[in-house]
Design a binder for these strands. Structure first.
Length: 760
DNA sequence: AGCACGCCGACT
DNA sequence: GTCGGCGTGCTC
């Protein structure tokens, strides 16, 4: 089974003593040297510092300083002071002249053993230096020192000299709660702070130091206990029955079947046992509705953790979490590296979402690392989705994961009627992209006062611009990809590296004016078409590159939910999180779009995206809502699966295909991302790898044009795709290869991406 | 990752 | 003559 397949590769030799229960100052005394020994022996400890070192560095422990593995310490590193973590095991033999003293131990709970093993595991699996992994856990510099105490007041028992009305109200409030802040008490009593000041002066109150207020209120598991359907209750019971030890369970339920309420019961069970809980969400900045639902269930919001959380708040959350004062975090993938004190459950919501994969510096898939965290920490992990990843489906089918299904009988009825629009039979008019069939449906919908959503996963106006006179195509100078016409911004942009030029009027090749022509649709162009076809309808365009950022987007989404638009046109961000009750028609414009981009997961992604976006439709007025999918390949397995609603058959087919092609979760895929100055250099390095390879995996060099992935953002980056159909872990190959081939520096830099699930 | 050192191009 | 570009090496 899975847990025993999680070796800790690098560091071993824990001393059992070191992780013992913590005395109040967070650090146990450690070994005390005999006075005679003190003269000769210098105690050294390994310290993992936040830089790409393969091993922890050795530091000397000053006399009288108490450190244990996990202690967060400040150490000198070259010219500066950095925060590091005392690690497990023995120190390397290091030139005593290099040895430097630990500057100080932060007054902060140490990282627990499970967390340290997790960091080592992630470093080994992702083939990245453990120092860089620990860096992710230490991204809250000011949090290592205790939060500053604030000034509070408490009653002394002395009676006020003259009991005015205002003073009486203050005394009444003070009688109910022992300690207050000055302004807090004044506010609660409905008086000005000067009343409190007066009483303070008289000695009725005295000041004291209070610990700062909690970042979030404690959740109350009894607060908003939902009425569960029999289905939901059974599923919740199945989750809770998994017990406290490690297990992974796939919670699969169609849109609207109430998965969230079900796993909330598992969350409540963990909280009742005094455990902390982590709920991972993809792109949490846009999921206010989740926070609201959590609040309604538990009477308090979870602590939020994502890139939009301001630095001060991050520090507060980091600290209070380490102290165990925060019980629940809802966060993006980076929350996996937070210093939980007693984590007892991780829920990965929308587990299939590609946003869980980090493709920057350290490549990891948060869903899989959550499973690893659960395995090392000995607690359950729940993966929830309406459209699970093929990997999780296979793991569930093979018994590695539990499988809890929510049939959701009411939900079935509320799902939209889906139909394919065969673009070969019902082509749009010239220069248009919406089929007359869909267009008519939009007209009817708007006429009824309902909303229509048009989905097209392509930003901008048109993906290609060419000159009608000489045939010149606008191309990125760095990436050899087409420049995307962004009319609202007046730019041609490269979606790979961010290169942009103002939209030209003349062809740079032949100089002809006004003969440039846009080819293909983007959301801006669909918006234009809708404005022309339905000039009286209120049309809204939603796209990630619109000005105003996430906040404006959230406002727009709220406005749409309130009915302040008739036609909404959006990229894939409309597929996430939001539910639109008035939306009774969803149209997918270029549903085939994602199928031909060379991604081995293209079919799966398209299936999930189309399923999700059509699930946005509401259920207005008892009439079933409709989903219409424009496709040029109606016979494609994905399209057939979407139209028939037969997800099971899609998965079956996809699993067979993957097995045949040796793709994950059966075969292994990894890529070595190299930054090289030219394709030639990248090819050169690929040759080096091939020569050094102990076996013979295929290594393919892909530039930005062939591998349209976020990971290739930036100039001159290439992806060497290592494909191995055998069960032999690609890591083993890469490790050996990297050891044999000179590690590139400077002109060629590399990062490694091992595809999820190959750890099983 | 940062930071210093060191070696070649365009300028006050 | 310097200022400063980033290639290279190092941090216990």
């Amino acid at each position: 089974m899975f847990p025993r397949r999680l070796p800790i590769p690098t560091l071993r030799g824990q001393s059992a003593r070191t992780d013992s229960p913590r005395p109040c100052r967070h650090a146990s005394p450690g070994a005390v040297l005999h006075p005679v020994d003190q003269l000769f022996a210098i105690r050294t400890v390994p310290v993992l510092v936040p830089l790409p070192a393969e091993r922890p560095y050795s530091y000397a422990v000053p006399e009288g300083m108490a450190v244990v593995p996990g202690s967060i310490v400040q150490v000198p590193l070259g010219p500066r002071q950095v925060a590091g973590v005392v690690w497990d095991g023995e120190t390397d033999a290091v030139d005593p002249k290099k040895l430097r003293l630990i500057t100080k131990v932060f007054d902060c709970p140490p990282l627990d053993r499970a967390m340290r093993r997790f960091i080592d595991w992630v470093a080994d699996y992702t083939l990245s230096p453990p120092g860089l992994v620990v860096r992710m856990a230490l991204r809250a510099p000011a949090a290592f020192d205790p939060e500053a105490l604030i000034e509070g007041i408490e009653a002394t028992g002395v009676a006020p000299e003259r009991l005015t009305d205002a003073r009486r109200r203050v005394m009444e409030a003070a009688a109910e709660t022992p300690t207050w802040t000055r302004s807090g008490l004044a506010h609660a009593a409905g008086v000005t702070p000067s009343v409190v000041d007066g009483l303070l002066k008289q000695g009725v109150f005295q000041t004291l130091r209070l610990s700062p207020p909690p970042a979030v209120a404690l959740p109350d598991t009894a607060y908003g206990r939902a009425e569960l359907s029999p289905d939901q209750a059974a599923a919740a019971e199945a989750l809770v029955a998994k017990g406290d030890g490690f297990s992974t369970t796939l919670l699969e339920g169609v849109t609207g079947s109430g998965k969230t309420e079900v796993y909330f019961e598992a969350v409540a069970a963990a909280l009742d046992k005094g455990k902390q809980v982590l709920i991972l969400l993809p792109e949490i900045a846009l999921t206010q509705s989740f926070i609201d639902r959590f609040h309604a269930r538990f009477g308090a919001p979870p602590a939020e953790w994502h890139s939009d959380v301001p630095p001060r708040r991050r520090e507060q959350i980091w600290r209070q979490l380490a102290e165990g004062r925060i019980r629940v975090v809802a966060g993006a993938r980076s929350a996996l590296f937070l210093p939980f004190q007693d984590l007892g459950l991780v829920v990965v919501d929308e587990e299939h979402d590609p946003a869980y994969k980090q493709e920057d510096r350290i490549f990891y898939h948060a869903r899989d690392m959550a499973v690893v965290r659960g395995s090392l920490g000995g607690f359950p992990v729940i993966l929830a989705s309406a459209t699970p990843s093929v990997e999780s489906r296979v793991n569930a089918a093979d018994g590695r994961y539990g499988h809890v299904k929510l049939a959701g009988r009411f939900a079935e009825a509320a799902l939209p009627d889906l139909s394919l629009v065969d673009m070969r039979l019902a082509p749009p008019a010239r220069g248009r992209f919406v089929s007359p069939v869909l267009s008519a449906a939009i007209g009817e919908t708007v006429a009824r006062g309902e909303q229509a959503l048009l989905f097209l996963n392509r930003r901008g106006y048109a993906p290609l611009t060419l000159c009608r006179v000489c045939g010149h195509r606008f191309q990125c100078p760095d990436c050899s990809t087409w420049l995307v016409d962004h009319r609202l911004r007046g730019q041609l942009q490269c979606h790979h590296c961010g290169f942009a030029v103002p939209r030209p009027e003349a062809c740079p090749e032949c100089g002809t004016l006004d003969h440039l022509v846009a080819c293909g649709p983007g959301v801006e162009r669909i918006a234009e078409e809708m404005l022309a076809t339905f000039p009286e309808a209120r049309t809204i365009l939603l796209s990630s590159d619109l000005p105003g950022g996430a906040r404006r987007l959230r406002r727009e989404l709220d406005a749409i939910a309130e009915g302040e638009a008739d036609i909404v046109i959006g990229t894939q961000l409309v597929a996430k999180g939001h539910h639109f009750p008035l939306m009774t028609l969803v149209g997918a414009i270029d549903a085939d779009l994602g199928l031909a981009n060379g991604d081995p997961r293209a079919a799966e992604r398209t299936f999930q995206l189309l399923h999700q976006v059509t699930g946005r439709a509401g259920r207005s007025g008892g009439r079933k809502s409709r989903g219409m999918i424009q496709t040029w390949q109606p016979e494609h397995a994905v399209m057939r699966a979407i139209a028939s609603g037969d997800a099971a058959r899609f998965y079956e087919r996809e699993i067979t295909e993957r097995g045949r092609a040796g793709l994950p979760p059966f075969g292994r895929l990894a890529s070595v991302i190299v930054s090289a100055n030219s394709r030639r250099e990248a090819e050169e390095y690929a040759r080096l790898l091939r020569r050094a390879a102990p076996e013979d995996p295929s290594i393919e060099v892909l530039g930005p044009a062939e591998a349209p992935l976020a990971v290739l953002r930036g100039r001159h980056r290439f992806r060497l795709l290592v494909h191995s159909p055998s069960r032999a872990p690609v890591q083993g190959f890469l490790r050996a290869t990297i050891a044999a081939a000179p590690r590139p520096r400077g002109s060629v830099q590399m990062q490694i991406d091992v595809d999820p699930q190959s750890f099983l």
